[in-house]
Design a protein around this nucleic acid. Structure first.
Lengths: 133, 133
DNA sequence: TCTAATTTGGACTAATATAGTCCTATTTGA
DNA sequence: TCAAATAGGACTATATTAGTCCAAATTAGA
């Protein structure tokens, strides 16, 4: 839902770490060790961020990751979407599938919940990685 | 976390329903039937709201619930707290126990997460039941 | 060309949180 | 005394999140 999951938390820490490494390539192991983040989980996250063009990766010996965007171009809201999927304040606010709400007919609060959704979204859309650095 | 769980959703629907019943006592069965909410679950929610002085209950035949506060005195943020416990954008933002964050030392993003917490809290603190009626 | 360091990525398990159910009291008006 | 209601503990089921395990592919350097 709308929250900073462990994945997002780890992503923020990793991105911050990478952004502070003066263009030197950073390995998953390095981040995992200094930040005490489970290695396998972190790897998955970095791979995802690479596939989403947030990071650039170099494989093999001496490989590692580097940023592919400026920190102020990476939005928290997007990170959350990438890592945890649809960001929604309530089950019925999932865009993708309209997650067929069983209450549809009897629900009397949907429009206000939608308003809430927008307000909360805005908070997360207004934060970028640069805010965390 | 910070979201409208089913419990909160049902509470909002129920409170709206009760607020629109002109002081007539409303039974859990009545709400459950017309709003298609699982009866047992709804009962628990109403009992909780009664214990938190949001509702007044009358037991026995012809019993039921009525509001104990004006709708604009019932804050969404408080409802969430009552029904789902501590409202937090991240695990480390739980007040009660400081939920001993294993990253404590290596975490480099806590202050910004705290800022975020406050911003999101404010959204929920600025909504009352009257917004949903 | 071999080896070690590294990313890649699928499949699985464990832990936790949420949602829902079942059952038995207790209260009270008619 | 009965039926309609709230009260509430204990339990089960489901979904989500977190974390682990394993094997492959890539690449620099000895």
């Amino acid at each position: 839902m709308i929250r900073i999951s462990k994945k997002v938390e780890y992503a923020l820490m990793a991105l911050k770490f990478i952004s502070q490494s003066d263009n030197k390539l950073v390995t998953a192991r390095e981040i995992s060790d200094t930040k005490k983040i489970p290695y396998d989980l972190l790897s998955k996250i970095l791979q995802k961020l690479k596939n989403e063009n947030i990071l650039i990766s170099n494989q093999g010996t001496n490989g590692g990751y580097s940023l592919n965007k400026r920190t102020d171009e990476i939005y928290l809201f997007n990170l959350m979407n990438m890592l945890d999927g649809d960001v929604a304040v309530a089950d019925c606010m999932h865009e993708a599938k309209e997650k067929d709400c069983s209450l549809e007919d009897s629900c009397s609060i949907k429009s206000e919940v939608a308003k809430l959704q927008k307000e909360v979204e805005d908070v997360f859309k207004n934060k970028t990685i640069s805010d965390f650095v």
